[in-house]
């Protein structure tokens, strides 16, 4: 459809509608502009409910981030003759492929003949890796792995730890939350524990857990349980408290026993909140990963990052961070999809 057709249709709609909105659209079209919205709303700024995440601006945001990274770590006016010499020297020293920005920068600092007049760089590659260095570190991480484990092994080790932490956190958290929502005694018993436990950062417990449970997975998984259990407790509690009195009363009037009420009404009724809790807990657990893998494990993305830190391999650190971020986003998308399938009634009643 070309713009004339659109204008014609808009005008017809405007006249047919006879409404203020329709008229405004028709006027806008007469000026040769496309209507900004299809719902004929004339009040748009401040209509916060209509604000969605614009896909086009998603892309612009990501591109901007990469552009800032690229521009701030790029070396403008780096002496090209030195670059060629350094590349040759690098290969003579047994290096393969292209010399990294970081290596180039180091050699320039040490060399007497590296003339950096007219050279400009906002962030030097020793502080933060350039995109080129990060990309090659990513390629090497994926093709060769890192310190004895393949990229897949690192990723799976982390994912498996988070899943185990979530599993146990949910298994213990949900019944405690349900009990807290259903009984004043349980509420009274667990409230101090939950209120005090919730603000404790898992990192603070790292050393304690390592001593108590031993290093490695023995304390990494409990740390992740700790990260997720409070969220699951609070989610389940909110879910039960959310059950309306009419629902509960109707269930009893229909002949449900207490157990049937719990199993057939309260639990399904709490599912939307539990699902929201799962999403939040997954985010927090995944975010606690690096701390959890400080417990002396050698595989995993968090362990990769902390080992790379010991060797000042900032490019590998960024690769680890990017993979963690991507998997975090993927998991959230997956859970949101599952949420739509499993609790389709959420927000629709």
């Amino acid at each position: 459809m070309d713009s004339n057709d659109a204008a014609e249709m808009g005008r017809t709609a405007g006249y047919a509608g006879q409404g203020a909105g329709g008229g405004a659209i028709a006027n806008a079209l007469d000026d040769g502009k496309k209507p900004r919205r299809s719902d004929n709303k004339t009040v748009t700024f401040g209509d916060a409910g209509a604000v969605v995440s614009d896909k086009k601006w998603n892309i612009i945001g990501v591109v901007t981030l990469i552009a800032v990274w690229f521009l701030s770590t790029r070396a403008w006016g780096f002496p090209s003759d030195f670059k060629d010499a350094a590349q040759a020297a690098f290969q003579a020293d047994g290096g393969s492929g292209n010399i990294s920005d970081r290596e180039l920068f180091q050699r320039c600092q040490l060399a007497s003949d590296c003339d950096t007049d007219g050279y400009f760089q906002l962030v030097n590659p020793l502080s933060f890796p350039s995109i080129r260095d990060t990309f090659s570190a990513g390629v090497s991480f994926i093709s060769d792995g890192y310190r004895g484990f393949s990229a897949w092994e690192h990723t799976w080790a982390s994912l498996w730890r988070v899943l185990r932490g979530m599993f146990w956190g949910t298994l213990f958290g949900v019944p405690i939350g349900l009990a807290m929502g259903l009984s004043s005694k349980a509420r009274g018993f667990f409230d101090p524990l939950v209120e005090a436990g919730r603000p404790i950062p898992p990192l603070a417990l790292l050393s304690l857990f390592a001593v108590a449970f031993g290093i490695g997975d023995a304390s990494a998984v409990p740390l992740l349980i700790f990260a997720s259990i409070w969220i699951m407790i609070i989610a389940a509690r909110a879910g039960v408290r959310n059950a309306s009195l009419p629902k509960v009363r109707a269930s009893y009037s229909l002949g449900a026993s207490k157990w049937q009420l719990l199993r057939r009404v309260l639990l399904p009724n709490a599912l939307p909140e539990i699902f929201t809790g799962l999403r939040v807990a997954l985010g927090v657990s995944w975010g606690t990963l690096v701390a959890a893998e400080l417990t002396g494990v050698t595989d995993g993305l968090g362990a990769t990052i902390s080992q790379a830190k010991n060797f000042s391999q900032t490019d590998t650190i960024v690769v680890g961070i990017v993979i963690i971020a991507l998997i975090g986003v993927l998991m959230d998308v997956l859970l949101r999809f599952l949420e739509n399938v499993l609790v389709p009634w959420q927000g629709k009643s």
């Binding site: 009419p246 629902k247 009363r249 109707a250 009037s253 599912l271 609790v343 009634w345 009643s349």
Partner: peptide, 20 residues
């Protein structure tokens, strides 16, 4: 002495089970 299936109840709203 308590609710029973002998006496069915219809509420104004919010008593249906959305997951069913």
């Amino acid at each position: 002495t308590g609710p029973s299936r002998e006496r069915g109840m219809v509420f104004q709203q919010g008593a249906l089970f959305e997951w069913l």
